[in-house]
Write a protein that binds this DNA or RNA. Sequence first.
DNA 1: CCCTCACACCATAGC
DNA 2: GGTGTGAGGG
Length: 899
Amino acid sequence: MSGFSEDMPFFDEPNARPAAAPSGIAARAMAARSGQNGVPDYLKGLNPEQRLAVETTEGPVLVLAGAGTGKTRVLTTRIAHILATGRAFPSQILAVTFTNKAAREMKQRIGILIGEGNVEGMPWLGTFHSIGVKLLRRHAELAGLKSDFTILDTDDVVRLIKQLIQAEGLDDKRWPAKTFAQMLDNWKNKGLGPDEIAEGDARSFGNGKGRQLYKAYQERLQTLNSCDFGDLLYHPIRIFRAYPDVLKEYHRKFKYILVDEYQDTNTAQYMWLRLLAQRPQSSPLEGEVPAKRAEGVAAEGTAQSSNSTASSTAARTPPDRASPGHPPLKGEGNRRSSPINICCVGDDDQSIYGWRGAEVDNILRFDKDFPGATIIRLERNYRSTAHILGAASHLIAHNEGRFGKTLFTDRDDPEDDKVHVHAAWDSEEEARAIGDAIEAYQRQKHNLNDMAILVRASFQMRAFEDRFITLGLNYRVIGGPRFYERLEIRDALAFFRVVANGGDDLAFERIVNVPKRGLGEATIRQIHDTARAMRIPMLEAAATLAESDELKPKPRAALREVAANFERWQKALESTPHTELAETILEESGYTDMWKNDRSAEAPGRLENLKELIRSMEEYESLRAFLEHVALVMEAEQGESQDAVSIMTLHSAKGLEFETVFLPGWEEGLFPHQRALDEGGRSGLEEERRLAYVGLTRAKKNLHIWFVSNRQIHGLWQSTIPSRFVDELPETHIDIADSGNSYGGYGNPYGGGSFASGRGGGRQNPYGASRFDNIGAKDQGSFSNTYATPGWQRAQANRTEATDRNWGTRSGHQVERIGYGETDSGYGAGRTSVKGRTIEGELVAKSVADTPSAFNVGDRVFHQKFGNGNIAAIDGNKLTIDFDKAGQKRVLDGFVAPV
DNA sequence: CCCTCACACCATAGC
DNA sequence: GGTGTGAGGG
């Protein structure tokens, strides 16, 4: 319990009220007041809706905050307001965010509003997971853990599951551990324990052993004194349900609850919140209404916002009108709630974590869950130009099932650029062109810090990194290949973990034989078996084995050394400063020497990373605190001291804004991602569209969308078509870049036709949308081979006809699909061949459909990108071709034509 | 029994 | 382009 005392004094003073506030916050707030009306500085400059959201401190409040409407400002000001008016102590506010970044930013901004000193005392501001850890450390024993439990990352989890699958005698190839890890995640996201999962789900894995595996997994975690990410929410929920007294403590404790990004909460997070937010009273709720909602909420929301400006006393839905929203949660009872000061902020249009179990429904159902809720809409956008906003609004309007906010801005500057749409030949040209654009902005005195490239999938990042390295352009990758995921960091952390928690077998297994000590699979198995048989951790088992004569001299000596090392380090844990200890561990284990002796190119970088790791430990109190940070944060914090372009995924861009934003890779299959369509169907597509919306609304002034005609996926060049989202942008707000000719002389990339007509007229066209739907529906292939399938070939053929009709010409479908080649000098031959291929179009499609390949080794062929070459090998429809100029490449047979 | 190298197979997004 | 697995050498 030590370490948690900071808020203890208030624990038993549930009724501490403004008058009793001893902290001097109120006084400080008074000092901060300056206006004649007594309006504190921190409230100045808020618009009426924002101010209402800040000042409606009592009762449930839902703030529907569109992109760029000042959501974070409202949240932070609200907290500042609660503190400054002495409504609660910092320790009595529970504020939950999704990302560490958001939590950090909130802390900082509250600090600015009311003074640093007042925020340090906000121990319960953090991510769901970090707060979960805190709760769980306090009550670990109620979940069968010790308070020093370790948190496993995805990698550990998969390895553990693999062991269990093998232990069950199942084939781990047929039943991949990764798949089961995903299933586990889904279950835990729904708050389901092994006995609560659906029978069908339980049976669907490992010859019906799903449930059994789940149980075995949880048992194993317990013996390892570990938990996974899901447990950080799942355990507290179970504790709250099983121990009402514990829950009550927190009910007394938290006077105000605030939740950021409420649209991203999953069922488990929702349960967790409800348990904390609901103070059950005696009278049971009458009646039962199924959870259908939306219209009611929307209507109410509109009514609210229309009259909300009038007064700060919100017209609230009377409690009596309460409709008992959701099906009762287990163990929670169906009770009427007393008013809860919970404030959730979110935007249904930015819900992009469905794949992680997020339920948009949570936000749509808010007023049913919390009767009498005040719903406030923030629709005034302060971030983007009218063009950007117009493009984003028009795009998102293609979604059904939304509240339907209308963002607006007063901004009307004729100087503002429209949203630029660009085409490039392939991903390399895309990277080159974006690099050039960035440099051009730089010459106009734009900071690199104000620019970002937002990609759909992280593999897209490499092209930009490569390009920027050659240009010498500073960049930073956010949330990319993460620091902690690096081999050397994971190894080092494994050493530390074993020292901190001797029961962490997974970490132990990782490093027993690092550096190589001659302990192979056989020895490790023996340690494993001994540990299991004696029910002790592997480290102890190793020590035991080292003293027995069951091993050959060599491994025995090695084990003895390992065991002695860890014993020594564990002893030093309490007495030695942790950074020093960490260095000692890496030295004495021979780990640093291992890399010093390594002649490979990466070795110096790895040593550098290890130093960085040690450096970053300094900020933490202890080794344990550091390990927890690593487990939860997962991303190395990079200083923003340097001017650099940011590269990140669209997902990690949520909540951020940049002056200039580049959105590359708007192609069917990549964005919307084929897997999202395959797995999620229509709702999958809508989530992708919301992701596109998030991307568009990150930009303040300049926005550039790119698509390419050729992209390399899994080492194969694939032809691609522009994303349907490109078509969904409103013509009035976009500007088609018409000079793609700086590289290779492609001339007008749109083949002379206007962009819209080239694409079949987009919105008003008779075949646009449905044509794309066909592609999605008929195509059974996975992303990697989508474009080799008969369905795509057909779609392509249809497309050609359609476009031809539109253009009134009959030329190669490749040409107008991609839109290149008209004036191409460098690829002049390509044009002819492409045309030639078109004439054979039907034949090619047929051959792809019927037979693996119509080519023979030795055939001379032409490829649009690589030119002429000879086929060196054939593997199904994959050809290995020795190109005259480009060298050996593997390509799909659909993309070459006989010469 | 362990280590190294070549090969197969694979990659949406992240707390 | 990265990682996990298998065969062969030491």
